[in-house]
């Protein structure tokens, strides 16, 4: 299970301001804090900050990589920003993950050369020109299409991360199930392909969002989730993730669980 720290996202007002003000210290502190909390990769998104989009991404990637050694997930809806992020990325720190492409042809064509050139890993969202499908069958079909386009271009299956997408449970009773069914069907057809998603959209519009996010993380992990984009500074979330990893048979002799306990990572105030 790969834990991706979600906090360096310009959709959050504080981060947006840190980027706009070129606040090196705050950005680097937030990066370090997430890694200390257990993040093995950090998501970086600068696209909501004002100013030159590509310069913002360049500054963010460089600033974060100066502070931490984990690889980055370069997150943007704009191809130009992703390309800039890859261009300035320090590849000694592990493969970058780009986030994301979708089933929209224009978007694939635009980013495919960069994916092949840098041999990076890539997140592919199961949506296309028609929007987000409201059923797992269509989401699976888009996943199949994306996997084919990527493998045809020479991207290995193991470098593909499918995002099954999460729509708020508050707007449709089956929205959690649709995500879980999509994960299962993709994993069944392509065990080597990885699954990643940001979970917190599930709880939009409901109270006690963290509780929903935590339970949904466990449910999706049991369906075959390989990576989650979460708040790794949230001790309870991380304790639950670690425990779930152990229970899912990915922790030999429970060594990771016991170690986390000894480090005080499993005890927290309620």
């Amino acid at each position: 299970m790969l834990i991706i720290g979600e906090k360096l996202n310009s959709a959050r007002k504080q981060v947006r301001e840190m980027i706009e003000n070129r606040d090196v210290k705050s950005i680097q502190d937030l990066a370090k804090k997430q890694v200390e909390g257990g993040a093995e990769m950090l998501d970086v998104n600068s696209s909501a900050a004002s100013g030159d989009k590509e310069e913002n991404m360049e500054w963010l990637v460089k600033t974060v990589q100066e502070a931490v050694d984990v690889p980055l997930c370069i997150d943007s809806p704009n191809a130009e920003e992703i390309e800039k992020g890859l261009e300035v990325y320090n590849w000694d720190k592990g493969k970058a993950l780009i986030n994301s492409i979708t089933g929209e042809k224009e978007k694939i064509d635009r980013l495919l050369p960069a994916i092949v050139k840098y041999k990076c890993t890539v997140v592919a969202l199961v949506m296309d020109e028609r929007g987000i499908p409201d059923n797992s069958k269509t989401r699976f079909e888009i996943a199949e299409k994306l996997i084919k386009v990527l493998t045809d271009a020479g991207v290995p299956l193991k470098d593909i991360f499918i995002d099954p997408l999460v729509v708020p449970i508050g707007t449709g009773d089956k929205n959690g199930l649709i995500t879980m069914e999509t994960i299962r069907s993709v994993k069944e057809a392509h065990p080597e392909v990885k699954i990643v998603t940001g979970l917190s959209n599930i709880s939009y519009g409901l109270p006690e969002r963290k509780l929903i996010n935590q339970v949904f993380m466990i449910l999706t992990m049991s369906c075959g989730m390989d990576a989650v984009i979460i708040d790794s500074t949230d001790k309870r979330m991380m304790a639950i993730a670690k425990t779930a990893i152990t229970l899912l048979g990915e922790d030999n002799f429970c060594v990771g669980y016991i170690q986390a306990y000894r480090e005080g990572k499993l005890t927290f105030e309620k």
Binding site: P168, T171, Y204, G205, L206, P207
Partner: peptide
């Protein structure tokens, strides 16, 4: 006022 939630509005 956050006294009711999205599903209740729907």
């Amino acid at each position: 006022k956050n006294e009711v939630y999205v599903p209740e509005v729907l």
